[in-house]
Amino acid sequence: MRYGYARVSTIDQNAATQEEALTNARCDMIRVEKKSGTSREGRSELETLLAFLREGDVLVVTRIDRLARSIADLQTIIAEVKAKGAQLQCTEQPVDTGTAAGKAFLDMLGVFAEFETNLRKERQMEGIAAAKERGVYKGRRPSIDRDQIHAMNAEGVSPTEIARRLRIGRTSVYRCLGRVAG
């Protein structure tokens, strides 16, 4: 069996191009999901495909970054595929875990996918820092009104009652008041 896996990161992205490539690669079954590739968490379609794999099967993706964005996740997925006696192939990259050259190329692509993710995170953090300096970005609004907590406490309202009235955790009240809970 040839199983195709397509993934896009956001809802507004379209996996049609990947699905077409996987159909052209003669996949018997294609699973598609809209989830981030930075983690395996919550990627139920990938988990389903990995559970289906049997000896002699092939997992097909268009590019390695559709499968994983971290070298650790990629290696874990490859180990699972190999343990089942299956192979991994890419339609747009010369990756075929059935050959030594394909395995080596796979490892290099995994390193670059993780590098790209780390670069994106760095650029995002730089952008946030620059926006903070310009006063454009202030982060999210505080969900706890510290003045209100202190005022209620000054009136003699217990931390438990303050938490109930403000619909926040009691630990948050204690933290705001500078006390140790319990």
Rank of each mutant, 00 (worst) to 15 (best):
L49C: 06
A100Q: 08
L74V: 10
A51Q: 09
T23C: 03
V61R: 03
F105C: 00
L53H: 03
T38F: 07
G85Q: 06
V136S: 08
R141G: 06
L50E: 04
A6W: 04
A21S: 11
L119K: 05
S70Y: 04
R7S: 04
S158E: 04
E116Y: 09
D147F: 00
Q93H: 01
A129Q: 11
A16I: 07
V111D: 00
K35Q: 15
A72I: 14
V157A: 02
E122H: 09
M108N: 04
A79V: 01
L49E: 05
P142H: 07
R54D: 11
T117V: 13
E45Q: 15
I162E: 02
A86D: 07
V58A: 13
I78E: 07
A68L: 09
R43L: 11
Q89R: 14
T97G: 07
I30Q: 02
E45L: 09
P142R: 14
P142T: 06
R164F: 08
G102Q: 06
S70C: 04
M152D: 07
I168F: 02
E92G: 02
A163T: 05
L50Q: 03
H150L: 15
V95T: 00
S39R: 06
A130T: 04
I128V: 14
A113M: 09
E80T: 13
I78H: 09
S143V: 15
T62K: 11
T38I: 07
Q148D: 05
L119E: 03
E55T: 08
R123V: 08
E55Q: 12
K121M: 12
F115G: 10
P94K: 00
I144Y: 03
A51C: 02
D65H: 04
F112V: 13
T160W: 02
A101T: 11
K132F: 01
I128N: 02
Q93K: 01
K35A: 14
C90I: 08
T91D: 08
E55H: 07
H150V: 09
E33T: 08
P142N: 12
S143W: 04
A21M: 12
G37F: 07
T171S: 13
E122T: 14
C90W: 04
T38Y: 06
R167L: 10
K34I: 10
T171Q: 07
T38G: 14
Q124D: 07
E155M: 12
R2Y: 11
E55C: 05
S70L: 05
T160A: 14
T160G: 14
R40C: 10
Y174N: 05
I144V: 15
G178A: 04
K34M: 12
V81T: 03
D107L: 12
S39D: 04
E92Y: 00
V180F: 00
R66T: 08
L88H: 07
A15V: 07
A15N: 05
S44P: 00
E45M: 15
M1Q: 10
T17W: 03
A129P: 00
L88G: 05
A21T: 00
L88C: 08
E122K: 13
Y5I: 08
L119H: 04
Q75C: 10
Q93C: 06
F112T: 10
R179P: 00
